[in-house]
């Protein structure tokens, strides 16, 4: 009789967590060193420690920059990395197709629509103008998601109905967005910038609203890791194993859509992260969601951190939208997956 299987799994989980957290820490400090004001690794680290000790009060310019500009940005990158990747992993499990991403329920198109509509109509919310775009994006995403939900439930609530409803809603909102972009011209320049996804304007006011919901919703998903394993058997076998498939799927779709909406609202559309990260994690650690999901969280945070660092350094001083970088990395990876494994998923 060998080592206990559960104990082995716990061991692997601890291992992956330690490795993932240490690389994340290094990347985190590295990202604090980057920017027009030059700083070394240890300089950034000491600035961070000093400013945190003083609770954010400082007059040292390095510390100010680390605390007010780079720290919130890094935290936000981690939050969004976790959120989008978890959402992707869950969507892939419940739709049982590894080639889908968290935008499948139309939330990204909805968010883009919300932003363009708000900009086109020139809406600004008095007193909190900085939240206008995120709020518009969030409401747009939620609207798209509710429409998808309604359509899917009305057509029987099957897995395929969600996918098709999401596609239809996505196309509808995209066409509205295109119309706005044509009509709006220069006014919507900013919307285009948002559409690509960027962390350039993240402040402490935003961080809380991104990081905390993203992390806590992801932890809630973690609590359902066993159910996500069961759902891999397919709807019918999952039901025969004792899982109430329909209500579980509904719950998961609601959680992932919320998760995606929060991420999209503040940082725009960051493509391919939710698609590619679960794959990397699956190759590394297998399909048991109790190990897979924590791995997905760590890989997601690491990958987006790297993408953000690349976006900031590759064409210095010009900063590229991080969404462009993730897509650039993601497209070849996706093409590879499609060629290698695509024919297994032909319906």
């Amino acid at each position: 009789m060998g080592e206990s299987i559960v104990r082995q799994k716990i061991l692997r989980l601890v291992m992956v967590t330690v490795i993932g957290l240490s690389t994340l820490f290094i990347l985190f400090i590295l990202s604090l060193t980057l920017g027009p004001v030059e700083m070394g690794f240890s300089e950034a680290l000491t600035s961070l420690i000093n400013v945190l000790k003083n609770g954010g009060r400082t007059s040292n310019i390095n510390e100010l920059i680390v605390y007010h500009i780079r720290l919130p940005r890094a935290i936000c990158v981690i939050g969004v990395g976790i959120g989008l990747s978890i959402a992707g992993a869950v969507m892939q499990a419940i739709i049982r197709n590894p080639l889908v991403d968290p935008y499948i329920t139309g939330v990204s198109s909805g968010a883009a629509f919300g932003v363009c509509l708000a900009m086109f109509a020139g809406i600004t919310i008095v007193k909190i103008p900085f939240y206008t775009i995120p709020l518009a994006a969030f409401l747009g995403a939620l609207l798209a998601f509710l429409l998808t939900m309604f359509l899917a439930e009305a057509s029987g609530g099957m897995t395929l109905s969600y996918v098709l409803a999401g596609v239809v809603v996505g196309i509808a909102f995209s066409s509205f967005t295109t119309i706005f972009l044509v009509l709006g011209g220069e006014k919507l320049h900013g919307a285009l910038f948002w559409l690509f996804g960027s962390f350039a304007y993240v402040s402490w006011k935003v961080v809380w609203i991104v990081f905390v919901p993203s992390l806590s919703l992801s932890i809630i998903v973690l609590l359902y890791a066993r159910e996500l394993n069961v759902i891999l058997l397919g709807d019918e076998q999952a039901m025969q194993s004792g899982l109430d498939v329909q209500s579980f799927k509904r719950l998961m779709i609601i959680i992932t859509s919320l998760l995606t909406s929060v991420c999209v609202a503040f940082t725009g559309i960051i493509g391919f992260l939710g698609l590619v990260v679960p794959h990397i994690a699956r190759i590394l650690m297998g399909s048991d969601h109790r190990i897979l999901l924590p791995t997905v969280m760590l890989v997601g945070a690491n990958v987006l951190m790297i993408a953000d660092i690349i976006a900031r350094t590759v064409l210095k001083p010009v900063e590229l939208p991080v969404g462009a970088i993730t897509s650039l990395i993601g497209v070849p990876f996706f093409a590879y997956l499609l060629i290698k494994r695509g024919r297994e998923y032909v319906v």
Binding site: N97, P98, L232, R282, S287, Y345
Partner: peptide, 19 residues
Amino acid sequence: LSSEFNLTVSDFVFLGRYP
């Protein structure tokens, strides 16, 4: 059995304990 996600044999058998 459908195996898009390629569980291991023990992962799969463990699912029987779900209830």
